[in-house]
Design a protein around this nucleic acid. Structure first.
Lengths: 129, 129, 129, 129
DNA sequence: GTGGTCTAGACCACC
DNA sequence: GTGGTCTAGACCACC
C-alpha cells in the first residue's frame, strides 16, 4: 500500500550517459511538471522507492529532489515526503526560460556544424509535412 | 617560416567553460573541416605551436587531435605532424545525419514542453535580428 | 572489503616492452572479455587500485579504459567506476572477423615469403610440443 | 635515362600507418629480395628518385638503405648507388628467422583473442579448399 | 570512495 | 623540428 497516494513519473534513466544521474532525475521531474503530469500537491514517489526501482543511490536522488526544492518545484514535509509545488507564475517563466535555452543551444549546435538557419527551415518542412 | 605550410583554424578558447578544453579544440577543428576551411591533406598547426599560442598543455591538445584521429578527421605522421583526412563522402553523410538528429531531437523536446513550431519561429526572429 | 564487488583481470605487465603500457592494459581487459572472465555488468577494478597495484600512473590506466570505452568494451559511471559492456552479438562478430583477418593476412605474408601451409604446420609442431 | 639500369621494387607506402616509413621501405626491399625480384648485383632505385616518387624525405630512405646495408642486404658504391647483395646462406637464415617470427607472433595474437590452434586449423581448411 | 581534466616536465622515436 | 608515452600531483564533479 505504500505507494497508494504517490505519483511516479517517467524516467528514462541511462546510467551509461555522461549526464549525471541527479540531472536526469531532475529533468524527468521538471518535464512531468511542465507537461502537467504532476500538479500542485501531488505527492511524488519517495526517495527510497525510486532508489529501489532504479538501483540508484538514495543520496543521488535526494540531491535531485533538493535542487528541485531550491528551484521551487517541490517542497518537503518531514516524515511524509516530497510534494509538487505548482507555482503557476514561476512555472511559466521557468518553462519559457527552458525553451529559450533549448532554442539558443540548438542554434549554436547547428552553427557549429556549418549549417545556416535556412538549412534548418528546409529540414523543418520535411518534419511538418 | 616554421609554420609556412601549416593551416591554423579559428579557436575561441574559453578556459573557464564547463566544456573541457580538449572538447573545444575538437569542435573548432571539426567546424573548420565542415566549413571546408581545412581540406584533405592540409597540415594542421602542430601540437606544440598551438600549445604555445594558447598556453595550453600539449597533452590536452594531443588528446583533442587524438580523438579527431579516432573519428577519422585527422591522421598523424610521426615526425611531421597532423593532417586533415577529409573523406568527402563519409563526411557529408555524417554531417547531414548529425544535423537531422539534432533537428528531430530538438523538435521532440520543445513539443514535450508544449511548444509549437510557430513558437519556435517567433523565438527565432529574436535571434536572427 | 573495498574491492568486494569489483573484478580484477590477469595482467602480465612488462614496463620495458615496446608495447605501450596502456596497450598492454587494453589487451588484458579485452582478452578477459573475449574469454568471458569478465562479463556484462561486471565492475572492473578501479583506476586507482590498478594504479596502486602495478605502480602505474592513473592517467595511463585511464587512457586504456578510455579506449576500451570508445571501442564499446567498457562504460564508465562517474563516481562509481568502470563496468563491462558485453554486447554478445557485436562481440562475437568482431572477434570472429578480427580472427579471420589475422589468419588471412598471415597466410598472405608467409606465401609472399615463399612458404607453404605445410611449412607452417611443421613450424607449428615446434610450438605445440 | 637516369633510371636505365636501376631496379625499382613494389612499395605500398601508407603514410597514415603507425609503422614508420623507413620500416615500410626496409620491408619492401627485403620482400623483393626474398621473392627474388631483386637479385645479386641489381642496382636499386636511388635515394633521390625514390624520394621524389613518393614524396618521402631522402633522409628517411637513407635510413632504410643504411639498415639494409648493416643487415647485409645492400651495399653501397660511392657515387654510383646501392646494390643488392644476395648472400644466399645468410638470406636463407634471415628468411627462416623472419618466417618463424611471423608464426610466433601470429600464434600469440590469436591466443590473445581466446582462440586455440584447433580453431585456426578449422579456419585454415576454408582457405585451402 | 569513484572517474575526469589539466599541468609541468621528462624522455623517446621519427623525419 | 614533429608526435607519443609516462609520471607526479592538483583539483573537480559525482555517488
Amino acid at each position: 500500500m505504500k505507494q497508494f497516494d504517490t505519483k511516479a513519473f517517467e524516467l528514462d534513466l541511462d546510467v551509461k550517459s555522461a549526464v549525471p544521474i541527479y540531472e536526469q532525475v531532475k529533468n524527468a521531474v521538471k518535464l512531468a511538471i511542465f507537461t502537467k503530469k504532476l500538479v500542485e500537491g501531488d505527492k511524488i514517489i519517495s526517495i527510497r522507492d525510486l532508489s529501489a526501482q532504479y538501483g540508484i543511490n538514495p543520496l543521488t536522488i535526494m540531491k535531485a529532489y533538493n535542487y528541485l526544492e531550491i528551484d521551487g518545484f517541490l517542497y518537503s514535509r518531514k516524515g511524509t515526503g516530497y510534494y509538487v509545488h505548482f507555482d503557476n507564475e514561476k512555472l511559466k517563466k521557468e518553462r519559457k526560460g527552458f525553451f529559450r535555452k533549448q532554442v539558443s543551444e540548438f542554434l549554436k549546435k547547428i552553427a557549429s556544424l556549418g549549417y545556416t538557419v535556412d538549412d534548418f527551415l528546409k529540414e523543418l518542412k520535411k518534419h511538418t509535412k
